[in-house]
Design a protein around this nucleic acid. Structure first.
Length: 297
DNA sequence: CGCCAGGTAAGGA
DNA sequence: TCCTTACATGGC
């Protein structure tokens, strides 16, 4: 099966190969599978899972169904929205590039990575879990934790000798205990936080729509009320899920290392120093962070 | 073995 | 408000 579902227009200042390079940054990623020309990802539709492929052709992005159920018309519209958010297709990056060109740290990166978008995590549950799992552990381990969570509780579909997974839905954690998650080597705090987020989402006490409707500071405050969600996690979720370009995870050790490296410092900058520095990137702090992260690869 | 890793909560000055 | 400290485990 290789049905073309629809095509999407790609904006200026977008380069598919650069975004694919980003998606190829870790072979441990379990929620999508990029290759030389496109990316495959499993989605959960009402009729069951479907393996979707996105691949660029000129200034269009082709979205195909590789295997699984045919999504209903409304689901295809939702899919188009998801993909537009995933690759931040509706963003006009010209102001960011104008700002970056005059910035000593960003200028070389903006040139090297030109056309890179913030690759989003549009699902709030996935985004919160990914942030929680990534707290205070190296990325390789965080990917393994995510893979274990996904393989045990998510959905899957096999296609051409490979198994694809989608992230679990929050409601499947209703009867899961902290102890059970601890066997996957989550710490007790991570297990508790994941279960709490799952419960809030399943109960409708937290939703992406609600957060998107709030002013950034109030969305921030709502996220911080969740035990296990601190400043870094809330900023990270604003940046990667709510797609707030002003989010700035100042406590991020990857950001600290990137700035230390690029600025030739003999120590990591403090969060306060980074916040001061971020004044140069006003309105585009999240993009600055995303590009600065790329300096580490 | 020791240090670090895309932090957070809790306790105390 | 601004320090400490415990947590907890893999990667290198």
């Amino acid at each position: 099966m290789n049905d073309l579902l629809f095509e999407m227009a790609l904006p200026p200042d977008f380069r598919w190969d650069v975004n694919l390079d980003y998606m190829n940054r870790s072979p441990l990623e379990c929620l999508y599978v990029p290759d030389a020309s496109g990316v495959n990802r499993l989605f959960a539709f009402s009729g069951g899972p479907a393996l979707i492929r996105a691949a660029a052709a000129g200034d269009r992005l082709k979205v195909m169904l590789l295997a699984g159920v045919m999504p209903a018309p409304q689901e295809q519209q939702d899919l188009a929205v998801f993909i537009a958010e995933w690759f931040d297709l509706d963003r006009d990056l010209r102001p960011f590039y104008a700002l970056a060109a005059a910035d000593p740290l960003l200028a070389p990166l903006a040139e090297r990575e030109r056309g890179l978008r913030i690759i989003a995590l549009p699902g709030l549950f996935e985004a919160l879990c990914w942030a929680i799992l990534g707290q205070q552990v190296n990325l390789a381990f965080a990917y393994k934790l995510k893979e274990r969570l996904t393989q045990r509780y998510g959905g899957s579909l096999e296609w051409q000798g490979r198994t694809y997974y989608h992230f679990p839905r929050p409601d499947v954690f209703g009867d899961v205990s902290e102890e059970e998650l601890c066997t996957l080597q989550l710490t007790r705090n991570k297990a508790r936080a994941v279960l709490e987020v799952a419960r809030l989402l399943a109960a409708g006490e937290l939703s992406r729509e609600e957060l998107l409707a709030l002013p950034p500071q109030e969305a921030e405050a709502r996220l911080l009320r969740i035990r296990g969600v601190g400043p870094w996690t809330s900023q990270y979720v604003r940046m990667r899920c709510l797609r707030d370009t002003t989010a700035f995870p100042a406590g991020d050790v990857g950001l600290q290392n990137a700035v230390k490296f690029l600025a030739g410092m003999d120590r990591k900058p403090t969060p306060a120093e980074l916040i001061e520095m971020a004044a140069r990137w006003k309105g585009w702090e999240a993009y600055a962070v995303f590009y600065l992260w790329r300096a580490l690869y």
